[in-house]
Amino acid sequence: MRILVCGGSGGIGSACVAALTTAGHQVHAVDRDGPDGVDITEPGGAEKAVAQAVDTFQGRLDGVVHAVGRSGRRLGDGPVSTCSDEAWRDVHRVNLDSVFWLLRAALPVLRQNDGGGSVVVVGSALARTLDRDFLTAAYLTSKSAVETLVRAAAFEGAPDGVRVNVVAPGLVETPMAARALTDPAIAARLPELMPLGDGRASTPAAVAAAVEWLLSPSSSQVTGAVLPADGGWSLR
């Protein structure tokens, strides 16, 4: 398969690139901080990323991964009563608008394929669970909205064989999660939050394995789904 990975320099994105390459797929990775400087969180960036991938793969694109995300705590994200306007706007632009722009750019390309294609968006277990230590209004609503957007795209793409799904991790060992993972109070709660991890956060590689499965023919009947790859976070 020929796959575009957006956010390919990030913690989960780079793990996706590695997993997909190891599995024998051709990968075109873009990132705001990468050599191409493609930023899908800005208008026009998603179209540029898809066009680059189609050109790289000589006219065909089989799969797309959205692995771009942002925490807005430093901008004032928090409970509804205190969440700042800046955090609300910025987090939604990165976590939700960019998914919309990428789906809008990729769906017409994938629908042209004989056999369709697959899109996987990295979401969050927080989209469906509330917790006192992770009550961030902008982040929670952006990730929840992504799930509905993905279902709408899956419904649209299904007649042409295009599948669209979400992988929803809990805490993952990435720079974005460093604040939480270095907080002694949250670290002490990890056995409760992620019981399958036995007190440890997930690795990017574990999330990437779930992404690779959803892109592969092994998941050919799965679309519009949210796959929890969260170490049991969503069981609470």
Rank of each mutant, 00 (worst) to 15 (best):
T174F: 09
D55S: 12
P191Q: 03
G72A: 08
A53R: 03
E192P: 10
L103A: 00
E173W: 00
T148S: 15
S218D: 15
G170D: 04
D77H: 08
R104E: 07
G224D: 00
C16Q: 05
A225G: 04
A225R: 02
R111Y: 10
L171D: 02
S84W: 13
G69P: 06
W88G: 02
R179M: 13
A154K: 09
G78L: 11
Q221K: 13
V122T: 09
P228I: 01
E192V: 15
E47S: 05
G117L: 07
T223I: 06
G115V: 07
P195N: 00
R200H: 12
Q112L: 12
A168T: 13
A168Q: 10
I3T: 14
E212K: 03
V122F: 05
A19I: 03
A49N: 03
L215Q: 02
G34V: 10
G170I: 05
T56C: 10
P195G: 01
V99H: 08
V119D: 05
V91P: 07
A137V: 05
Y139H: 14
V207W: 06
R89F: 14
V27N: 01
L214Y: 06
D36L: 14
V17A: 04
A49Y: 04
V120H: 05
M176C: 06
C83F: 11
R93S: 01
Q112H: 12
D160A: 15
D131R: 14
L110S: 04
P204N: 01
S144Q: 15
L227A: 13
C6E: 03
R179A: 15
D36V: 05
Q58K: 15
F57S: 03
G59N: 10
S118N: 12
G44I: 05
D62E: 11
G59Q: 10
D33T: 14
T203P: 01
A51I: 00
R89N: 10
